[in-house]
Amino acid sequence: MNMNIIVCIKQVPGSNKVEVDPVTGVLKRDGIESKMNPYDLYALETALRLKETYGGTVKVISMGPPQAMQIIREAYAMGADEGILLSDRKFAGADVLATSYTLSQGVREAGEFDLILCGKQTTDGDTAQVGPEMAEYLDIPSVSNVKRIVSVGEEAITVEMDMTHTVEIAKVKFPCLLAVEKDIFMPRLPSYVKMRETKDKEIKVIGFSNLKDQDEKKYGLNGSPTQVKRIFPPESNSKRELWSDSEEVLADKLFKKLKEEKFI
C-alpha cells in the first residue's frame, strides 16, 4: 500500500523568553530567531517512518510569513517530499479558527491524502486546537494524544490515545487526522546530504487567490471570532515569605496555605 501523508508544521520563536518592558509596555523578544515547533518534529518523524514502512509520500504544509520557508527546508532535509507554504497578508491576524480554516483549504490544494499528522501543540500558542478544528473542516475523524501506532491496515489505522487515567485503543478509518504525543518516535536529525540535495527544491507558495473558498470573511482577522483585547505581564511570583514561629503555628499556617492553594 502507499500512504499519502500530510504533516502540519509551524515556525515558532526560538525562545519563549518574552517579557513586557515595564516602562514602555512593549513586548521584548530575544532576537527573532525562530525554529520548527519542536512538537512537529515528532509528527514529521512519524510520517517518515510510516512512509519508509508502507511507501508513499510525505508533504509538509505550513502557514506563515515567507521566512517560514526555512522550516520547510528543514523538513526537506529530514526527508519530506513536498512542501507547501500558505502565505498572504489576508491571512494576518488569524486566531485558531481562521488558521485551521486556512490550513484546511490549503490541504484541499495539496491533493489526495490518507493521513494528516500534527504535533501535540505549539510552543508559542499551546492550544492544541488546530488539529481537531482542521479535521472538523475537512470532515474527517481525528484522534489527539496519540502515543503509539499499533497497526496500519488498508482501510484504517489503529492507535493508542492517551487519556487521563486510561489508554484508549482506537481504530480510525482513513482519511483521518492524528495529533501525536512527543516521544512517539525519536525525531531524526536533518541530513546534511539531503539539505544539499534539496537546496533548490521547489516550495509551493499558496496565497488567498489560489484557494477554493474566496470568502475573505473566513480568513485572517476577519475570520477570527476571538479578539485579543490587551496583553499584560503576569503578576510576579517573586514574592518570598519567611515564617518564624512556634512549630504548632507554623504547621497550622502551612496547612492553611496548602488548602488555599488547593493542594488539600
Binding site: V96, L97, Y101, D126, A128, G131, P132, E133, S142, S144
Partner: peptide, 20 residues
C-alpha cells in the same frame, strides 16, 4: 485530554471562538 480535542471540534462546527 478529552476536552482539549472535543472543544475545538465543536467550536469549528459552529465557527465560533475557543480560548484554551
Amino acid at each position: 485530554n478529552v476536552g482539549r480535542q472535543l472543544a475545538p471540534r465543536v467550536a469549528a462546527r459552529f465557527r465560533t471562538g475557543l480560548t484554551a
